[in-house]
Simulated assay, not measured.
Amino acid sequence: MSEFDSNPFVDPLDINPFQDASITQATSGAPKNVGEFNPFSATEMGTHSGTTIPISAATSQPAILPTSVEQSAQQANVAAGQANLLKQQEELERKAAELERKEQELQNRTGGRALNTGDKENNWPPLPKFFPVRPCFYQDFEGEIPEEYRRICKRMYYLWMFHSATLFLNVLACLAYFTADSQYGVDFGLSILWFILFTPVSFVCWYRPVYKAFRSDSSFSFFFFFFVFFFQVAVYVIQTVGIPKWGNSGWIASISMIGTNLAVAVVMMVVAGFFTVNAVLAVILLKMVHSKYRRTGASFTKAQQEFSTGVLTNRTVQTAAASAAQGAFGN
């Protein structure tokens, strides 16, 4: 029991671990000039003066490869971006085309093309080349009339053609009227006169003015058209009524022939219907032209200015005025 006789509270023997024989032998052989290593000393900083490599340049590979879901999402985002860019490009091209069209229409409205019509060869009426009479007017709806006025201008042209056809049919109906009753020969003669006279006069006096008005936005042409076409509507009404011996196969003249010759009465009623359609279409187109006219910004003041400018710059008027002045001073 000797191990139990020792006092546990007595300090144990102070043993230095570095006094071990193996450690002492290892440390005794170390070189004497080895000092403490300091990485921040001037000597160490001089020996390691190379540039540092950034972390981003150290590797170009991600630590974790993207999954297939992330790749699909990235591809979808790229495709959506490309589609958006294409849509924006198409929108820009559409707006550019719209601006170019509006600019072209503005040039047409201000007379940009109207100034060059004198250099173009007349193409109306469309006559064969061997015909001795040459065309007197130039007409091109696609090239001269702006798109917003093109339809109404064509309708006015179709109305003039229908008007001319009605006058020709009126000659045939009045001829039948004359054959049925010889006292109505005056109607046949006047119908020929109306056809020869009103066909070219209507073209020059109300169709060409409205064509010029839509072509160059001319206030004077608009006012001239309204003034003449109002009388044309009144003439349509008179022709529809058909007063006997006025040269018109209207309703009164056709109804009066029912008891005498039914076949002639039917032919005259057809022409009376044509006159009625002319009157109705004329009223409708007059209102349509007036609505277009209100959008163009034309006015009576502008019409006066255009008339004054046209008169002062007209060579015929200038020559006549000069001749009158010379005659006055000569006397």
Score class of each variant (00 low, 15 high):
S2I: 11
D5Q: 14
D5C: 03
S6P: 00
F9W: 14
V10M: 15
D11N: 13
L13H: 03
D14K: 15
P17A: 09
F18I: 02
D20G: 15
A21Q: 05
S28D: 01
N33L: 04
N33P: 06
P39F: 00
T43E: 11
E44N: 15
E44R: 04
M45G: 08
M45A: 09
G46V: 03
G46I: 01
G46H: 09
T47F: 15
T47P: 01
S49F: 13
I53W: 05
I55V: 03
I55P: 03
S60I: 13
P62A: 15
L65M: 04
L65N: 04
T67D: 13
T67Q: 10
S68G: 11
Q71C: 02
V78K: 00
A79I: 10
A80V: 10
A80I: 06
N84V: 06
L92H: 12
L92Y: 07
L92E: 10
L92Q: 08
A97Q: 15
E100Y: 01
E103W: 11
L106S: 11
Q107K: 14
G111W: 03
G112K: 04
N116T: 10
N116E: 14
G118F: 09
E121Y: 09
N122Y: 09
N122T: 04
W124K: 02
W124P: 02
P126F: 01
L127Y: 00
P128T: 09
P128Q: 05
Y138V: 09
G143H: 03
P146V: 08
E147S: 13
S164D: 07
A165T: 07
T166W: 01
F168S: 06
F168N: 12
F168A: 15
N170H: 04
V186Y: 14
V186K: 11
G189S: 03
I192V: 12
I192K: 09
L193V: 14
L193N: 10
F195E: 15
T199N: 04
V201H: 01
S202Y: 11
F214T: 05
F220M: 08
F224V: 06
F224W: 13
F225R: 09
F230D: 07
A234V: 12
Y236P: 01
Y236M: 02
V237L: 04
T240L: 08
V241W: 06
P244L: 02
K245E: 00
W246H: 13
G250C: 09
I252G: 06
I255R: 13
I255F: 14
M257P: 03
N261G: 12
V267I: 06
V267Y: 10
M269L: 11
V270A: 05
V270F: 12
A272Y: 00
F274K: 13
F275P: 02
N278T: 03
N278W: 07
V283H: 05
I284C: 08
L286K: 10
V289E: 02
K292P: 02
R295N: 00
R295K: 04
S299Q: 05
F300K: 11
E306N: 07
E306A: 10
E306F: 02
F307V: 11
S308Q: 07
T309G: 12
V311S: 10
V317P: 06
T319K: 06
T319Q: 03
A321Q: 08
S323L: 12
A328G: 11
N331C: 02
